[in-house]
């Protein structure tokens, strides 16, 4: 931290450094790079799922209409929380600290509701007999793929909730600035983006006809 400050500001206000390559803060660039890497992680998982689904003859299609409605409700909550995050970042940019904090916490609340809906969904599937590697409908791989993909996404959501809470509290105390809040938002939108691929491929391709 101190080293960064030493090198960033020259003694007499002279530029001592080349300008950052993309004209964004270091932290934001790190977050972007992380997002790219994480996108490939999710991509690889989805490819693995698709591979196994193609190669399996008795792939089950168990999702009832209630599951689909639940999935859409989850999408709605997550995209809405993305939107509230945008409002928070906007308020922070405009200097309205109180509003930014409120909207950030609404975002976290959205994330928590999403996680609750997700767990409710898991529990109801569990009640129908779905296990990690067994289910009454067909290939056990379905449960394995379903739980690993949605599980990884749920981990990201919970992690995002914690991260945004920490950043917002830090922002409240003045430890973080609005740029950091924006970076938290960047991650949150990415979690949202991944969900946009999880819903059609994991849920909608496996509905009961």
């Amino acid at each position: 931290m101190s080293e960064a400050h030493l090198t960033v500001g020259g003694p007499s206000g002279v530029e001592t450094q080349e300008a950052p390559a993309f004209a964004i803060s270091h932290k934001k660039l790190v977050m972007w790079l992380f997002i790219i890497s994480d996108a490939i992680t999710f991509g690889a998982l989805l490819f693995a799922y698709g591979y196994l689904r193609n190669a399996t003859t008795d792939w089950p299609r168990p999702f009832e209409t209630s599951s689909v409605i639940n999935a859409y409700a989850m999408t709605f909550i997550l995209v809405t929380s993305s939107f509230t995050m945008l409002v928070a970042v906007r308020a922070a940019r405009a200097g309205d600290k109180g509003r930014a904090i409120t909207w950030s916490f609404i975002t976290v609340l959205g994330g928590l509701i999403f996680a609750l809906l997700h767990i409710k969904e898991w529990l109801s599937l569990f009640g129908e007999g779905l296990r990690l590697f067994a289910n009454p409908w067909g290939s056990g791989l379905f449960g394995a793929a379903f739980f690993s993909i949605t599980g990884l996404h749920l981990t990201h959501v919970v992690g995002g909730c914690i991260a945004i809470t920490v950043v917002t509290l830090g922002y409240k105390r003045g430890r973080y600035d609005q740029g950091d809040l924006e970076i938290g938002g960047l991650y949150w939108h990415f979690v949202d983006l991944v969900w946009m691929f999880v819903v059609p491929f994991v849920y909608l391709l496996n509905i009961k006809h």
């Binding site: 859409y72 999408t75 059609p200 909608l204």
Partner: peptide, 11 residues
Amino acid sequence: LVISALQILIA
């Protein structure tokens, strides 16, 4: 959100 709804229709 509309696109998400469209996906359900397609499904």
